[in-house]
Amino acid sequence: MLEIKNLEASIEGNKILRGIDLKVNAGEVHAIMGPNGSGKSTLANVLAGREEYEIDGGEVLYNGDDLLDMSPEDRARAGVFMAFQYPVEIPGVTNAHFLKTALNEIREARGEEKLDAVEFLALVKERMKLVELDQKLLNRSVNEGFSGGEKKRNEIFQMAVLEPKLTIMDETDSGLDIDALRIVSNGVNKLKNPNSATLVITHYQRLLNYIVPDFVHVLVNGRIVESGGKELALKLEEHGYDWVKEANNVAA
């Protein structure tokens, strides 16, 4: 589904990604772990199409298409979904209006009928339960005045409505208490299916107790230095990142 080949990227002249190789197949959950500043969020943002990042080399194929050549909205329409680390507040735009517009644009791109207000509401009500979000939030502005936990749950709720093929979760666990973490993870797990894949980006192993990865990759200094199964995450939890850095001769 996703194939990243020797991807290099920088922002404002600072090299962040120094050659990433990664292959993700449908049905798989991959975790990308790494210390602060290793390039985890850059990778997520580059995949979502943030324009501030400059691509210096390499390519990214998404179902055989050149992902880097697509606009952010086209990526979304093709099924790429990013759960943001810091979801932005958009005053004046209600959640309902926002999500209905997004859903119908995506459906249109897929060649499906647009949903009318009644159908949309029915869908939304059902999916809201998944992340235990209060329906009142629908009429509030996007993320405005939401607590940290509500913002993250709202991200997963959007995911539930938009039904992406590839989900990139950018530090979704940061700022979540244990209950919210459980709700968010439950949502993600329920949405999992053999046709979709998930890329979980996280600093801590904690989230991976809930969303169990098939593969774990360690990102240090813009490169994947270690890959393995879920046990790798536990090893990182126990020993910290230093041993990976040492083992790979990377300056701390």
Binding site: S71, A76, T101, A102
Partner: peptide, 11 residues
């Protein structure tokens, strides 16, 4: 905000 909307598929 623009990016957020676009990343959800809105042109």
């Amino acid at each position: 905000a623009q990016f957020y909307l676009r990343s959800r598929g809105i042109g």
